[in-house]
Design a binder for these strands. Sequence first.
DNA 1: GCAAGTATAGAACAAATGTTCTAATTTGGC
DNA 2: GCCAAATTAGAACATTTGTTCTATACTTGC
Lengths: 177, 177
Amino acid sequence: MANASHLREKILTFIKDFRERKGYAPTVREIAQGCGVTTPSVVQYHLNQLERAGLISREKEKFRSISLTGHRGLPVQVPVLGTIAAGHPIWVPSADMWSATAARLIEVPSEITQGRKDLYALEVRGNSMVDAMIADGDIVIMEPVSSIKNGDVAACWLKNEQEVTLKKVYCEDDRVR
Amino acid sequence: MANASHLREKILTFIKDFRERKGYAPTVREIAQGCGVTTPSVVQYHLNQLERAGLISREKEKFRSISLTGHRGLPVQVPVLGTIAAGHPIWVPSADMWSATAARLIEVPSEITQGRKDLYALEVRGNSMVDAMIADGDIVIMEPVSSIKNGDVAACWLKNEQEVTLKKVYCEDDRVR
DNA sequence: GCAAGTATAGAACAAATGTTCTAATTTGGC
DNA sequence: GCCAAATTAGAACATTTGTTCTATACTTGC
């Protein structure tokens, strides 16, 4: 997956460089050739991912219509549904809670959300998770786990102080102590 | 011709607006439709003119590759072959004079030259042509007349003071007084 | 090891697109 | 009015290009 994410980054920077150098956007095949991929379908695949993540925009069937959305990471609104304290069990939000508790919204760069929907956020209370680089006051982005199986991972994003300490840490969703 | 030049301007501004609005260049047919032309060949025709004039640049057979050359009027080097005084006959420059008298070069925006080659410039002495809006010290861009017929016109460009008093005046090439 | 999800290949198709060719129309000078 | 040049039209063609489909690795959790 590290390799995959690398290809997407490569494609993204290739598009940017191409546009700066040539003045117009590259085609799918030009991206493929420029990034060492042998077929346009792979590029198409990653372009869909990038578009879903809001990093690029393009129009269907329009040639050379790829544009970079200036904001690498178009902020996405994510609701803060509550707080998470040390040692407390984490409940998964029920459907009714979604619309009801429209408590607070925070903006998350789309690099993190990766187009995922149904994300929610929790505020951390207490410093019991310092080992996971999570401190008191941090906000954790959670991905609801549909299955009962525990041990699932969720992308978590630390937002404390001013500068967005954007560390792609993956932390345990459930806890059990 | 006034109408023709108008279409070229229209195409040019359409390309500019399209790029700003959509983020990528229009196709030949999109230009045609946007400018009220029924066929791509006409647009192709004018795009060739615009490219020859240095106002746009594009790559052969590349879709949506039209770029505006920021400088509306990429300066073209034109040699100043001599001076023109009131009442003097104007000689047409012989071929040998071209390379020999590399006296001085001035830059002329390509809107004026329109891609024409073999242009040359003369500096005006005396104010005998004030009626034609030409004053002493002005520089006149001349187009060599291949035929002996007199009465030909040449685009003339007044460059005096700082601000380029760009007036598309057509003035008589021969004079006879 | 197995299964599921993810990523990569390759081929093939339909549509979009740049280009070229020829003819019709207009313009401007004589 | 007549002629040459410039401009506009229309059609047709060869490529390019976005997209889709299927199949093959590759990872990951169990």
